[in-house]
Amino acid sequence: MRLTSLMQSSLSLLYPARCLCCGGMVDGLNGLCGPCWRDLPLLGAGCYGCAAPLPSLQPGEEAYCDDCLTAPRPWRRGVAALGYSGTARQLVLALKHGDRHDISKPAATWLARPLRDLVTADTVLVPVPLHPWRRLARRFNQSALIAQDLADVLGCDWAPDALRRTTRTRSLGGLTRDERHALMSDAIAPNPKYSLQGRAVVIVDDVMTSGATFSATTTAAYAAGAKDVCVAALARVTKEAYIKT
C-alpha cells in the first residue's frame, strides 16, 4: 500500500492532474477545475420516468412529466446525472467522439449518485449496444465504458454483450420523437449467448433525448428475461428541440 501511494505521488509530480474539460490544473486526479465544476449542470429532482427536470418537485417525491403521462415508458424508473448542455455536453462529446476514455470514471461517479438507491445485489448493468460496424469504426462503446466504471463504483454486475444491435440505424440527430421511435423499433435484440432471466436490469447510455433508444433496449431486455428494467443516462437533453448527439 505504501509503495502504491509513493508511486501515485511520483506520477502526480511528473504528470500533474488536469481538468477534464478545459485542461487547467486541478487538485485531484480525473476531476474538474473550480470554474468547470461550477458550470456542470447537475440535475436535481426530476420526472420519475425520464429524469426530465421538474422544478417544483421535492426530493423523494414521485411525479411524472407530461410526456411520460401521455406515453408511459416501458421501463420502471429513469435517472440522469447531468443536463445535456455546456460543460456536460462538451464532456459527453469528448468521450463519445474524441477518445477521451479518462472521462468515463468520473462520469460514472456522477451517475452513481442518482442511481445508487435503485441498485441491489441482484442488479446487472447493461450498456446500450452499438451496431458491429459502428463499433468497429469507433473502436469502443462509450456506454459500455460508463457501465463498466459504474459497476465498479456501485459494486454490481455488468453485462456488456447481453443485448445486440441488429439494425445499423442512422444518427438520430435532427429527428422528431416519433421518427426516432420508428427508426429504433426492432433495432435491438437479446443476445442468444447471454441470459437476463430473473435479473433486475439497469440500461446505461450516455445521453437520453426522446427515450427511443432506451425504449428499444428495454423491450429487448424484457425479451431476454429481465424481471425489472430501469434506465440511467449520464446526460439528459432538457430542451424541446433535439440536439445532435
Score class of each variant (00 low, 15 high):
T167C: 05
D152V: 10
D152Q: 13
P55F: 10
L111S: 09
P74M: 09
G198L: 11
K193N: 06
G23M: 02
R199W: 02
T176M: 07
G28D: 15
V128C: 09
L40V: 07
L150E: 09
E61N: 02
Y242H: 07
G24E: 15
V229S: 05
S210T: 15
A80L: 02
R2P: 12
S171T: 11
R2I: 14
I103K: 11
A94T: 01
G23L: 05
P190F: 12
E62A: 13
L234S: 06
L125R: 03
L150M: 10
P192F: 01
S12E: 15
F140V: 03
V153K: 09
L118A: 10
L130D: 12
M1N: 12
S210E: 08
G49A: 15
L43F: 04
A144N: 06
R138Y: 05
Y64Q: 10
A182S: 12
L125F: 06
G211P: 03
G174A: 04
M208L: 08
W133V: 03
P41V: 03
A162D: 02
G83Q: 05
R116V: 06
S10P: 07
V79N: 02
K227Y: 00
G155V: 11
G78D: 04
G49L: 03
N30P: 00
A88I: 01
R38H: 14
L175Y: 01
V126Q: 07
P72W: 08
R134I: 03
C33S: 12
N141T: 03
Y48E: 14
T219A: 14
L196F: 04
Q90Y: 00
T219Y: 01
L175R: 01
L234G: 06
G198M: 12
S215P: 00
A80I: 03
F140C: 08
G31F: 11
V207G: 05
S143N: 09
Y242M: 07
H97G: 02
Q8E: 15
R236N: 05
A112V: 06
N141C: 06
P74G: 11
S85K: 10
A52S: 10
K239T: 15
T166R: 00
N191L: 00
P106C: 12
S104E: 11
A17V: 08
G155W: 08
I188F: 04
R164F: 00
L136E: 04
C68G: 09
R100E: 07
T123A: 08
P129A: 12
R76S: 13
S56I: 03
D178M: 11
